[in-house]
Design a protein around this nucleic acid. Structure first.
Lengths: 187, 187
DNA sequence: CTCTGACGTTCCAACTGTGACATGTCAAAG
DNA sequence: CTTTGACATGTCACAGTTGGAACGTCAGAG
């Protein structure tokens, strides 16, 4: 009945951009690099998405095209309104916890393939977790020295990744045993 | 250069439907209920998506409209082609590991809010994890008796959820301490 | 008998995300 | 001087996701 019930779109990309710009002005190209390097595993974005979002955000007054550099480079800076919006999103908006996982979706249907293939599937997930874990541990070592304010939060996010991969690894190992135990019972 | 490089769309919804139908025929309405109850946390789907996907799948020969019930009810059954496609997806297609998380995205930008609010944010995540964990543990108890083939995989998926929530809980607690330690250092 | 609520399907508008294509600048290597 | 590759932005079509509106059936409660 009420128009208040309507749900607004997420637009987390917008907030990701605001977050990056809160650390200082940058061009679309700069932001793209940052997305590829440090936000790739949390909120990936393509170039086309980024540039059009920046234009929309400029129109909405959340960012300002601060300076024009060579090669048509446009440097954007966050505005006060943008900073307000970012803080509002950080503190007032409930994170969306629904997380699609086709890895886990497959687990629900493992009964359609023979048990040895199901075990193989789980084994592959463990392998992947171990590889990623090794990569994360290396990053962890490389940033161990820094102790500035920004590094603290980066380390906390990275730690999430480490613990997540450890979780997947032990879960996958446990699940394989579980399957073999079930196979033995049903022989 | 080559046309082989093009990436096909995911269509995991399609495979989720195939997976559900592999357990027996069902109508769009039935499937919708199953999505809402058991797949909600892994691959949510809306009614409009489901019905149109079912029509597309019927056209593609992956499912068949088996029987017409009362109230225009159309019961779909998986075909051999559908089963082949499901098995192919289970064993040959690499799961997509990119997982967007606006909860974790916020962590990257916690420096834009005062430390006490950052701690509060992490605390909220811990609370939520504990609540969800309690709900999962209850489900775990309720299905502890069954030991049929299907229950094995359901239990494995549920265990993932339990371990994930435990991970978030301990990570969040650790992160709060980390923040307080950092605040003390920089006083 | 009428109303309610569950059952059941279809269509549509809006937005997000993806990949491909188009366009052009500038610096450095050969 | 030409080519390569990084820099830099814009636009398009297509597919997936969401929410809502619309339509109709059937069983049971009052």
């Amino acid at each position: 009945m009420s128009m208040l019930e309507c749900k607004l779109p997420d637009m987390s990309l917008r907030h990701a951009v605001l977050g990056l710009l809160s650390a200082g002005p940058a061009s679309g190209y700069d932001l793209l690099k940052t997305f590829e390097i440090s936000l790739a595993n949390v909120w990936p974005a393509t170039q086309s998405q980024l540039y059009s979002e920046l234009n929309r955000m400029a129109e909405a007054g959340l960012v300002q095209a601060a300076a024009e550099g060579p090669r048509g480079r446009k440097e954007y800076a966050i505005t006060d309104a943008g900073l307000d919006e970012l803080r509002h999103w950080m503190t007032e908006v409930e994170p969306d916890r629904v997380r699609r996982s086709d890895m886990l979706l497959r687990v629900f249907f493992l009964n359609v393939i023979p048990p040895h293939q199901a075990v193989e599937y789980l084994h592959k997930q463990v392998d992947h977790a171990e590889e990623t874990l090794a990569a994360y541990e290396e990053i962890k070592q490389s940033i161990a020295g820094e102790d500035d304010r920004l590094a603290v939060y980066g380390r906390i996010a990275l730690e999430w990744g480490v613990r997540y991969m450890e979780m997947v690894r032990t879960w996958g190992q446990w699940a394989q045993q579980e399957l073999q135990a079930a196979a033995a019972t049903h022989q």
